[in-house]
């Protein structure tokens, strides 16, 4: 059974309203005070037929953002620094690369006693509190109030920290492009990191992300996160299925619904092929320690005050 909300209706009530809001406030949309609820996408794995239309649509829509490195690359020191060059393998679509921000992952599992194959569109999860953005030491990665995160290719130095802190190792590096070339290419930086930016530019124009629009099976839906959660739960109930992304890394703006439990899926994973394992909230320690920072000055002042009164008592 299909969800009672028709897709068209759903989009009318959410995405395009959202698109208009983003367009309306222009660049200021990046600032605080935009109280709109962030957008999330639902990816219903049970509907995907693995045709890769979304992959090609992504590549077309974002081709102008892809790196155009100049060769030869400057030599980097020390020699352990890896050169990562995908510019001659732009056609690779079976994993994430700087030229392929979305790929179809094959998975097998058992449903009602039968072995089934599932195809899963994989890309950045757009975490609610994205460590790739929050821990970027230069502020090259940014999160927008609409809930998407993206890496500014004008500012990124390619140190790959975002990939190291991403629970899914999403961002992919291309050597030989970007700001580091103008600084100290031999000693710092190594190119630019690339990943799905959830078609921020299309959203600003009130359009849907290219992969969503191109899909013949309406696998993806975009809307306010609370509505997407409701829809995901509804779909999960219909198919007696499971949801990924509600709590992963503290919650993401991408929710997967699968007919097979995620921990019972067998799939190809490794470099550029993200896993589907449970993920704890990587930013939780920082958020908890923030409380210590509030208490700290009070504790220090109290200690000094205590000392002062003791002193007075002693001398009196």
């Amino acid at each position: 059974m299909r969800s009672p909300v028709s897709r068209r209706q759903f989009l009318k009530s959410t995405v395009f309203a959202a698109g208009a809001a983003v367009v309306g406030t222009g660049p200021a949309a990046a600032g605080p005070g935009t109280e709109e609820e962030p957008l999330a996408t639902l990816i219903d794995i049970s509907r995907c037929i693995g045709c890769e239309e979304c992959v090609y649509a992504c590549n077309d829509a974002n081709a102008r953002k892809f790196p155009e490195p100049e060769k030869p690359f400057p030599t980097m020191y020390p020699s352990r620094v890896p050169v990562e060059d995908w510019s001659d393998q732009r056609d690779v679509t079976d994993r994430l690369t700087p030229y392929n921000w979305l790929y179809i992952q094959y998975a097998t599992g058992t449903k009602d006693g039968e072995e089934i194959t599932l195809t899963i569109p994989r890309r950045c999860m757009h975490c609610q509190n994205p460590p790739c953005v929050k821990l970027c030491p230069w502020g090259a990665a940014k999160q927008q109030p609409s809930g998407l995160s993206r890496i500014d290719s004008q500012l990124c130095l390619g140190g790959s920290k975002c990939k190291d802190v991403c629970p899914w190792d999403i961002p992919q590096r291309q050597t030989g492009v970007g700001l580091y070339l103008d600084i100290l290419p031999a000693f710092a930086g190594n190119g630019v990191m690339y990943k799905c930016d959830r078609c921020y530019d299309r959203l600003e124009k009130g359009e849907q992300p290219a992969c969503i629009e191109a899909c013949p099976e309406q696998v993806q839906v975009i809307g306010r996160r609370s509505e997407i959660i409701a829809l995901a739960k509804e779909r999960a109930q219909e198919m007696n299925g499971h949801i990924y992304g509600l709590d992963e890394n503290g919650g993401t703006h991408t929710l997967y619904v699968s007919p097979v439990p995620f921990d019972q899926l067998t799939y190809d994973t490794g470099k550029g092929k993200p896993h589907l394992k449970p993920v704890k909230d990587t930013m939780a320690d920082g958020s908890n320690l923030a409380l210590a920072l509030v208490i700290a000055p009070v504790a220090g002042a109290a200690a000094a005050l205590g000392k002062f009164y003791n002193r007075i008592k002693e001398e009196a």
């Binding site: 821990l135 320690d285 220090g300 002042a301 000392k307």
Partner: peptide
């Protein structure tokens, strides 16, 4: 990252102690 936060908390304790003192 956690260590930087913990050290920052200690620095704030020391700083406010020294200032108050």
């Amino acid at each position: 990252h956690a260590m930087h936060y913990i050290m920052a908390a200690l620095l704030l304790v020391l700083g406010s102690y020294a200032a108050m003192d």
